[in-house]
Amino acid sequence: MSTPTTPRAVTRADVARYAGVSTSVVSYVVHDGPRPVAADTAARVREAIRVLGYRPNASAQALRTGSSKMLGLIVPELDNPFWSELAVEVTHAAAARGYDVLLANSDGDSVQERERLRTLSARQVDGIIVTSIQTHPDLSTVTDPGIPMVLLNTFFEVPHYVSIGVDACRGALDGTRHLIEHGYDSIGLVMGHAGEMELREQGWMRALRDAGRPDGPIARCDFTRRGGYEAGLRMFGDGTGPRAVFVSSDMQAIGVMRALFELGLRVSEDVAIVSFDGAAEADYTNPQLTTVRQPIEEMAREAVDRVLGGGDEGNRRLVPPELVLGASCGCDVRR
């Protein structure tokens, strides 16, 4: 019995022969340049590609050019709308530079984050953008120490790495001051687990002390809706909770709002809320959340520019946040 043979892969030369052009012309059509191709010639090449079932070999192209035209992106939580929005903006910024994005999810786990770093670097991407919830991410598992890497949405400086993030301390300071301007004497904090005192906590505390207010209660929890819900029950369940609260993420704030509803407390009338992040979901709560918005489009664009070798010099870039007013803080924002 004869052994079946594997069909030979269609090559660029096969397409060129079928279309009656050179292999260079096929390459120009496939890669949209660098030289222009007449419309009728390009149409013949595309028809040859369709008929023959030609699939360009990205690995071979990467070997020839020294570039995979691919960036790696690690996010901690794809089910969190903020991280999803940030990932989308990174893909848009990369596409504008002619790059695709290979996305990996670490589930907010340091072990998985290190593994995703190892696998992405082994795939010979041209650079890696890391969004980490770890205070000090471990970048030692990168198989190619020369690969460009940028830390995105990082609130702190990491020696030897470019990092881009919002000025979180300033954002929390502005958000808490806004609550103080409403006249609230006791302002609590719902804070995600971040190890040492995080910048959002520092901004909240500074605003209170600058105004001569006492430190309000703190409920620590996961950066999730569930975490915020449980923190809200703890902080307000016994009837002695503060009149206002600054929350370290929109997702947590949505959980806090659910807890307040179950406890029979009204948002803004009984408890005022300002949150942090500015995800699109914050625009559709009832009442609409007042939030410290991170400029994710600007941050994503700069991360891509820096990982590809552009942008300003320096290892640390802080982007100013914006306080976006809703009704959850007590403001009258009728539209």
Rank of each mutant, 00 (worst) to 15 (best):
residue 164 I to V: 15
residue 216 G to V: 03
residue 167 D to V: 06
residue 165 G to P: 05
residue 158 V to A: 09
residue 156 F to I: 07
residue 218 I to W: 04
residue 169 C to G: 11
residue 180 I to P: 01
residue 198 E to G: 06
residue 194 A to P: 03
residue 160 H to A: 15
residue 198 E to V: 02
residue 158 V to I: 15
residue 208 L to R: 03
residue 211 A to V: 06
residue 220 R to D: 06
residue 159 P to S: 11
residue 201 E to D: 00
residue 228 G to R: 05
residue 165 G to C: 05
residue 202 Q to E: 05
residue 206 R to H: 09
residue 203 G to S: 01
residue 171 G to E: 10
residue 188 G to F: 04
residue 193 H to Q: 15
residue 183 G to K: 10
residue 199 L to P: 00
residue 203 G to H: 00
residue 194 A to K: 11
residue 218 I to E: 12
residue 156 F to L: 08
residue 170 R to T: 13
residue 206 R to Y: 01
residue 225 R to C: 10
residue 157 E to G: 11
residue 223 F to D: 04
residue 211 A to C: 03
residue 214 P to G: 02
residue 208 L to C: 01
residue 224 T to I: 10
residue 213 R to S: 10
residue 159 P to Q: 14
residue 209 R to L: 12
residue 156 F to Q: 03
residue 190 V to T: 04
residue 205 M to F: 01
residue 215 D to L: 13
residue 188 G to N: 08
residue 169 C to L: 12
residue 161 Y to N: 06
residue 228 G to E: 09
residue 160 H to S: 15
residue 220 R to H: 14
residue 198 E to N: 10
residue 179 L to G: 11
residue 162 V to H: 12
residue 223 F to N: 06
residue 158 V to K: 06
residue 185 D to M: 12
residue 211 A to Y: 08
residue 194 A to F: 14
residue 204 W to R: 02
residue 222 D to H: 15
residue 220 R to W: 11
residue 194 A to L: 13
residue 172 A to H: 02
residue 199 L to E: 02
residue 178 H to A: 10
residue 209 R to P: 00
residue 204 W to Y: 04
residue 169 C to I: 05
residue 205 M to K: 09
residue 224 T to S: 15
residue 184 Y to G: 14
residue 168 A to I: 04
residue 223 F to Q: 08
residue 229 Y to V: 08
residue 182 H to I: 01
residue 226 R to W: 05
residue 169 C to Y: 03
residue 164 I to W: 08
residue 214 P to Y: 06
residue 168 A to P: 00
residue 215 D to S: 12
residue 186 S to M: 09
residue 165 G to A: 02
residue 168 A to Y: 03
residue 224 T to G: 11
residue 189 L to G: 09
residue 197 M to F: 08
residue 206 R to K: 05
residue 156 F to A: 04
residue 229 Y to K: 11
residue 211 A to L: 11
residue 168 A to R: 01
residue 207 A to W: 01
residue 194 A to V: 10
residue 181 E to F: 08
residue 214 P to N: 09
residue 160 H to E: 15
residue 205 M to E: 10
residue 188 G to Y: 02
residue 225 R to V: 14
residue 226 R to S: 13
residue 165 G to L: 01
residue 174 D to L: 15
residue 196 E to M: 05
residue 197 M to Q: 13
residue 222 D to K: 14
residue 226 R to G: 08
residue 209 R to N: 01
residue 193 H to N: 14
residue 170 R to P: 00
residue 200 R to A: 03
residue 217 P to V: 05
residue 200 R to W: 02
residue 163 S to K: 06
residue 193 H to I: 15
residue 176 T to F: 09
residue 164 I to M: 13
residue 216 G to M: 02
residue 164 I to E: 02
residue 208 L to G: 00
residue 161 Y to W: 14
residue 188 G to K: 03
residue 183 G to E: 13
residue 202 Q to R: 13
residue 173 L to C: 04
residue 213 R to C: 05
residue 191 M to L: 14
residue 226 R to A: 14
residue 163 S to R: 00
residue 170 R to H: 12
residue 194 A to G: 10
residue 172 A to T: 07
residue 202 Q to A: 07
residue 211 A to G: 06
residue 219 A to N: 07
residue 224 T to N: 11
residue 169 C to R: 13
residue 185 D to T: 14
residue 158 V to C: 04
residue 217 P to F: 10
residue 172 A to L: 05
residue 173 L to E: 11
residue 204 W to I: 02
residue 225 R to G: 01
residue 202 Q to D: 03
residue 189 L to V: 04
residue 194 A to W: 12
residue 216 G to L: 00
residue 216 G to K: 01
residue 220 R to L: 12
residue 158 V to Y: 09
residue 210 D to I: 06
